[in-house]
């Protein structure tokens, strides 16, 4: 057991526990706070994977924007489902069975794959993933068109969200 493995295991247990609390807790505001904790754990995993930019983007986008948006929406639609009534629908045992079967199936498929226990190749001294990512997102041979389409889609989604949530007099 190396130090990195111990760090990974602690982070994974905390993150999975927080994710489980997101789906089982009754109070939605608490669920949103557990969701923030899950996002923090995933950000730590990005650091372990040498993806520093994604770790920062995870904190800024998911924790800073998406979670806050969720909390706003919860507070705007409150007092509907506070603490009465079941929080899960009638078919929740089937949902549990499907989720467990998916997990088992994924592990079964992975365990038959030759590279399952592969170790990370050493990153060279000269390797600079951040620079590589930046170049890839704006170079015409690589991902400039998906990048531009994503920005147009974000604009369309924001205008659409305003139109949908607009209160017509």
């Amino acid at each position: 057991m190396t130090a990195l493995q111990i760090i990974f295991l602690i982070t994974a247990v905390i993150t999975l526990g927080a994710a489980a609390m997101v789906v089982i807790t009754r109070n939605l505001v608490h669920a949103a706070l557990w969701l923030i904790m899950t996002f923090f754990g995933i950000s730590v995993l990005y650091v372990l994977l040498n993806a520093g930019f994604l770790a920062v983007a995870q904190v800024v986008i998911y924790i800073g924007a998406i979670s806050i948006l969720m909390i706003f929406a919860i507070m705007l639609t409150r007092r509907v489902q506070q603490d009465f009534g079941p929080q899960t629908n009638a078919a929740w045992p089937w949902a549990l069975v499907i989720a467990a079967a998916l997990f088992g199936g994924l592990i079964w498929i992975f365990s038959g794959w030759g590279n399952f226990f592969t170790q990370a190749p050493v990153m060279g001294e000269r390797a600079d993933p951040l620079r590589q990512l930046g170049m890839a997102l704006v170079s015409p041979e690589q991902y400039v068109i998906p990048f531009e389409v994503a920005s147009v889609m974000l604009t369309a989604a924001l205008i659409g969200a305003i139109m949908v949530a607009w209160e017509r007099k």
Binding site: L16, A19, A20, T38, T88, W94, L96, A99, L102, L106
Partner: peptide, 15 residues
């Protein structure tokens, strides 16, 4: 895989 399964349970079971 575990995180995906937890999310799938949440999508299918929550009201």
């Amino acid at each position: 895989a575990a995180l995906f399964s937890i999310g799938l349970y949440g999508v299918l079971a929550r009201r």
